[in-house]
Computed example of a mutant assay.
Amino acid sequence: MEEAKFYKEIAEGPSSAGAYWIQTEDNVRLRVGAYHTPGDRKGTILLMLGRFGYVERYGRVAQSFADNGFSTVVVDWRSQGLSDRMADDQQAGHIHHFSDYQKDVSAMMQVVESLEMPKPYYLVGVSMGACIGLRAMLEGLPVAATAFISPMWGIKMSAVQRIAAWPLSWAAKVTGQGHRYVPGESGEC
């Protein structure tokens, strides 16, 4: 674990905040942010973000948690923030398997343990992070309580889209095109 770039002026979080590089078991380099204040004694919030989240984006939230006696840890998931990308297109947010995020959770917990962040742990999952967090809980993540905010339990699609989505995604994966955008979409804003 080594120190990583952290943009304090953007985060507007606790002054003791920092970020660290850590490798997952499948050799992906992730950035993990730790908002830890020595006086935090109530526990640590494991903040699991959605698709467009990154460490600094929730600095003010971490400040609010700190004001209430909690430390916060947050991870730039693979293909997000400053973490390694799984595709050449930096905007794609591509991953190979959704279950790979569990490797990111394990790496995040290594940082929590290395920094001796206070127990108990509490999970706050936002959107996609809620889905990742629920799976982590089902696999034994030791949390005392959980809050899910706008959980991504599924993607809203019409019946026609849903019928087309499975064979299209299967064909893309089989032909090595799983990293591409869906028809009609691009990385342009």
Rank of each mutant, 00 (worst) to 15 (best):
S71K: 10
Y122N: 03
R85I: 11
L123I: 08
E113V: 12
D104E: 10
W153E: 13
S169R: 08
L115F: 09
V160D: 14
G93V: 03
G133N: 01
Q177V: 00
M117S: 01
F98G: 10
G178T: 10
G176E: 05
D84M: 11
F70N: 05
Q91D: 05
A145P: 01
K173A: 01
S169Y: 15
A172S: 11
P118N: 07
K103L: 12
S186F: 15
Q161E: 14
H97I: 01
W166Q: 07
A92D: 07
M152C: 03
P183H: 14
P120G: 04
D67E: 15
A136S: 14
C131M: 13
S79I: 00
G187L: 11
Y181I: 04
K173E: 11
A130H: 09
G154Q: 13
D89V: 07
G69V: 04
Q161D: 08
S158M: 11
G125L: 07
V112Q: 06
S106E: 14
G125E: 06
P118K: 07
P183L: 13
D88W: 02
Q90W: 14
T146W: 12
D67V: 08
D104F: 04
Y121W: 15
P151M: 01
V124Q: 03
A171T: 01
G187E: 04
I132T: 04
D84H: 06
F98Y: 13
G154C: 01
S71H: 03
V143D: 08
L168G: 07
M128S: 11
S150E: 06
W153G: 13
V143R: 01
H97M: 10
W77P: 00
S150M: 12
A66W: 09
Q102S: 09
P167H: 13
R162T: 10
S106I: 14
L168S: 14
L123G: 07
A92F: 10
Q90A: 15
I155W: 09
S79V: 05
I132D: 01
G178A: 15
W77S: 02
C131T: 01
V74L: 11
S83F: 00
W77M: 05
P151K: 07
V75C: 12
P183K: 07
